[in-house]
């Protein structure tokens, strides 16, 4: 099996989910310059709601695909409501406050949502019922499952749909206008509070689907799952250029691939027995093809944050940059 190709397949799958979550971060940032740190928790709630619905319906004898779709169908409106509520109740009253206030509020909301989830779904790791049969295909030395194909296809469709919404519709144009100049957008008759609320709701709907995909992919959900996932998606948004919609898509996929390749190779690279003079010092461990691996694939999470640090140091505006236009 080709490790490189395999990790690219795994990375693109994961990265597609990151990209969909990253869109929520970047759209909100683009329109009100807020890093909504509670966005990862919306993903978690999506996964949790879907878990409850799927677990309840799994024994019912409904077709498995219908069960998963129903789970998603419940998760989306619940997350949209959560997204709307946090904007309406927490961020809107702080619209004219210094930027630090909504940022800290976002962290507070994140804690509240996590603990609400803890109360509802317990602290246990919840296992999604494995009702979807998995078929594995082999393409050029890499394995890809039907679930991975479905995840990638759904994410691509979501991104395409969002791009069409933002760049082709009246609401999307109003969203971009509001992002560029909220005061003038208001003067054009755009109710910017509604546009901002719509941005949160759309981001939350994407997060809901991402949560279901992530939960189904790994087969588990837990009340804390949103924080690391959220931070990674945020890193992806920064990598692509925060506020930039194509950037979030690119950043998500790239981050997923970097992470998967990192996890795939870090064990080999950090195996001290590969390096002659060190191996000589540790001949007991390295004798007979032994290994002395410093960092195993559990260090996977490190890569996303390494990327974040590198981007912030080397190119803070991200790959596609925040396209700051001329304000004549």
């Amino acid at each position: 099996m080709d490790v490189f190709l395999q990790q690219v397949v795994n990375g693109v799958t994961l990265g597609a989910v990151y990209a969909v979550v990253a869109l929520g971060y970047t759209m909100v940032y683009g329109i009100i310059q807020l890093i909504n740190f509670a966005h990862g928790e919306v993903v978690m709630i999506g996964a949790m709601v879907a878990f409850s619905v799927i677990s309840a319906l799994a024994p019912s004898g409904l077709p498995p695909l219908a069960v998963v779709l129903l789970g998603t169908g419940f998760a989306i409106p619940v997350c949209m409501l959560v997204g709307y509520s946090m904007e309406r109740l927490a961020y809107r009253p702080l619209r004219r406050a210094p930027r630090l206030a909504p940022l800290i509020t976002a962290i507070g909301i994140s804690i509240i949502l996590q603990h609400l989830a803890l109360m509802i779904w317990s602290r246990n790791i919840l296992a999604f019922p494995q009702i979807l049969g998995t078929t594995t295909y082999f393409v050029g030395g890499a394995a890809i499952t039907n679930v991975q194909i479905a995840i990638i296809a759904i994410c691509v469709a979501l991104m395409g749909g969002l791009a069409a919404l933002v760049y082709r519709t009246r609401l999307g144009t109003a969203m971009r206008a509001t992002a560029q100049n909220p005061q003038v957008a208001g003067l054009m008759g755009i109710d910017i509070n509604r546009v901002i609320a719509a941005t949160f709701v759309i981001g939350a709907a994407l997060a809901a689907v991402a949560g279901v995909l992530y939960g189904t992919y790994y087969g588990i959900a837990q009340y804390t799952m949103g924080s690391v996932l959220g931070l990674k998606a945020f890193s992806a948004a920064v990598l692509g250029g925060i506020g930039n919609i194509p950037g979030a898509m690119l950043g998500g996929v790239l981050l997923g691939v970097v992470e998967a390749l990192g996890a795939g190779y870090i064990g080999d690279v950090s195996d001290l027995c590969r390096y002659g003079w060190i191996a000589a010092l540790m001949d007991v461990r390295c004798a007979d093809g032994g290994h002395f691996i410093l960092f195993g694939s559990e260090y996977q999470d490190v890569f996303a944050f390494l990327v974040l640090i590198l981007v912030l140091v080397l190119r803070p505006s991200g790959l596609l940059g925040e396209r700051v236009g001329e304000r004549a």
Binding site: R170, T173, A174, A177, Q180, V184, L187, R323, E326
Partner: peptide, 14 residues
């Protein structure tokens, strides 16, 4: 106060 990254068409539509 034109919207700098919207096209002329989009500005007028707004």
């Amino acid at each position: 106060g034109v919207f700098p990254q919207l096209t002329v068409d989009e500005n007028l539509a707004m």
